[in-house]
């Protein structure tokens, strides 16, 4: 027996079966995943990637459905118009503030909620289900409801704000160009807090409990435990969530479209709602695509910047 099972290291003579093996089982292993993947690939390719390329090409064309004879390639004309378009620059600034305030409030309120949910209290399960409920509300419904709440005649908020002395009289906040943006922002905060709370809660629960016990034995106060253990542990999750969420919110036009339609006087127009109104109301696809490409470029620059920043800061 031992004789046969020698530890031989024969020369690399190719066995006759090798090529056949590659063709059959190997072939099967290569192809099989694509059987499962092909519907997804086809769908994403046809409905997202190809239109994406077409969309970019539209930005170099004049395509106005209301003006069908004025169609064709126009080079950078749309971009030149964009550069001179005051509404574009207003929308850009609005996009920044809309995203910034939405994220700032969603994150801080979400973190607070996650910390609360990470403790024990009576009726926690029910509480959790109820505070997460806004996330399930269809966007157009939240928009309508908040528009109602902000209505000076029939909504309670202006009256309450007046009673608290914040407003001098119950007037229409969403009719005031200086304040109008706060309407959609508040609705967005309401809608977005659960998302942050859920994500951060998951991260919180992954922190091993012994760390806190060790810190307590070492004499750390609750605040020190929070800043020295909780925050550093959450940091990677926070970074990635905030980045993705920023991009998502900057693209999120539904609330604004329903609540203010971008008005009054474009004071709530953000880039993505500007894309939509240009495409939907003016049917000017060329110009809408140019705005969209500009938005995409800005978001790309932002993403690259954040990733660069992360690389600089994370020195592990």
């Amino acid at each position: 027996m031992e004789g046969k099972a020698v530890i031989s290291r024969k020369q690399n003579n190719v066995m006759p079966g090798e090529t056949r093996a590659r063709r059959s089982l190997y072939w099967q292993y290569m192809v099989e995943p694509f059987l499962y993947l092909s519907p997804a690939i086809v769908l994403i390719g046809l409905v997202m990637m190809i239109p994406l390329v077409i969309g970019i090409s539209y930005s170099f064309q004049s395509i106005e459905l209301l003006n069908p004879f004025n169609t064709g390639w126009v080079g950078f004309e749309n971009y030149i118009d964009l550069w001179a378009d005051r509404k574009f620059w207003i929308a850009l600034e609005n996009t920044f503030w809309w995203t910034f305030w939405s994220i700032a409030f969603q994150f801080s309120l979400g973190l607070g909620l996650a910390l609360l949910l990470n403790t024990d209290f009576f009726g926690k399960k029910l509480f959790q289900a109820l505070v997460f409920l806004p996330w399930a509300v269809p966007t157009f419904l939240s928009a309508l409801t908040w528009a109602w709440l902000f209505n000076p005649v029939i909504g309670p908020l202006p009256h309450w704000l007046t009673a608290l002395g914040i407003l001098s009289e119950p007037y229409n906040i969403m009719g005031d160009p200086d304040l109008a943006m706060w309407g959609p922002i508040v609705a967005n905060i309401w809608f977005g807090v659960p998302f942050f709370a859920i994500t951060l809660l998951a991260a919180l629960q992954s922190i091993p409990g012994e760390l806190y016990e060790a810190a307590e034995i070492d004499g750390a106060s609750a605040w020190q435990s929070f800043t020295k253990i909780t925050l550093p542990f959450l940091a990677p999750m926070i970074a990635i969530t905030v980045m993705l969420r920023t991009i998502w919110i900057a693209n999120f036009a539904d609330l604004i479209f329903v609540m203010t339609g971008g008005g009054p006087a474009n004071s709530t127009q953000i880039l993505s709602s500007y894309v939509f109104t240009t495409a939907f109301r003016k049917l000017d696809f060329g110009y809408a695509s140019a705005i969209a490409v500009a938005l995409l470029a800005i978001l790309l620059v932002y993403a690259v910047f954040v990733l660069w920043l992360r690389k600089k800061l994370v020195k592990i």
Binding site: G17, E18, A21, S24, L25
Partner: peptide, 19 residues
């Protein structure tokens, strides 16, 4: 796991490609 090369036999029959 697929076999990259060589022969695998059961009772003298080559089984490399058998599921």
């Amino acid at each position: 796991e697929p076999i990259t090369g060589g022969d695998f036999l059961i009772d003298g029959k080559r089984m490399n490609d058998v599921r």
